[in-house]
Amino acid sequence: MCAVGRLILCVTIVVGSAVATSRAAEQEPAAVQTEPMTPPAPPASAVPVTPKDAAPPPSVTIIGASDAHGVLGRDVRSAADEDMGRIVDVVVDRDGHVRAAVIDFGGFLGVGSRKIVVDWNALRFGKIVNKKGSITLELTKAQVAAAPEYKEDTPIVVLGASGSLQPLQTIP
Rank of each mutant, 00 (worst) to 15 (best):
A142E: 10
G70Q: 05
G106P: 07
V111S: 10
P57A: 15
V49F: 03
G5N: 12
L168R: 04
V117Y: 00
C2T: 14
D93H: 03
K141C: 00
G133Y: 14
E26N: 09
E35G: 04
C2H: 11
T12P: 00
D104Y: 02
A31W: 02
T136M: 09
Q169N: 12
K115Y: 09
I128W: 00
D89W: 10
A24N: 02
G133V: 07
G112I: 06
P56Q: 11
E149R: 10
A68C: 02
N130Y: 11
N121V: 07
V102K: 08
K115N: 14
T136H: 03
L168C: 08
A65M: 13
G64Q: 13
V49K: 08
M84R: 01
V15H: 01
N121I: 01
P39T: 14
M1A: 11
N130I: 14
G73W: 08
P42M: 12
R86Q: 15
A31N: 03
T170V: 15
V76G: 07
L137W: 07
A31Q: 08
I103L: 15
D119C: 03
T136W: 01
Y150E: 01
E26H: 02
W120P: 00
I63M: 12
F105G: 00
G110R: 06
T154C: 01
V47A: 03
V11S: 13
V129I: 07
P167A: 05
D95S: 15
I103P: 01
D119P: 01
I8Q: 10
A161V: 14
E149L: 04
V19Y: 02
Q166P: 00
P43R: 14
F105D: 00
A24T: 13
T136I: 12
T12H: 07
A68Y: 13
S59I: 02
A20K: 10
I87K: 01
K127I: 03
A147K: 04
G5L: 13
A100P: 09
A41H: 14
K127Q: 15
N121W: 05
P43Y: 01
N130H: 05
E152C: 00
L9G: 09
A55G: 04
C10L: 15
I135P: 01
S66D: 13
E138R: 11
P51W: 06
I156R: 05
I87Y: 04
R74F: 04
G64H: 11
C10H: 09
I156S: 05
E152Q: 07
P29E: 12
A68K: 14
I8R: 05
E28H: 05
I103D: 04
I103T: 03
I103E: 07
S59H: 04
I156V: 15
A145E: 10
S22A: 12
H69G: 11
G106C: 06
R6S: 04
P167C: 02
P51H: 04
A80D: 14
I8F: 10
G126H: 13
F108E: 11
G85M: 13
P48S: 04
K115P: 00
A18F: 14
V102D: 07
A147G: 03
N130Q: 14
E28Y: 07
P29T: 09
L9F: 01
D83N: 13
A54N: 07
V11H: 02
G133W: 02
G163D: 04
A100W: 06
W120Y: 13
N130M: 15
T12N: 07
I116D: 00
L139A: 09
V117P: 10
A147M: 07
Y150H: 15
A142L: 12
S66A: 08
F105M: 05
R124A: 05
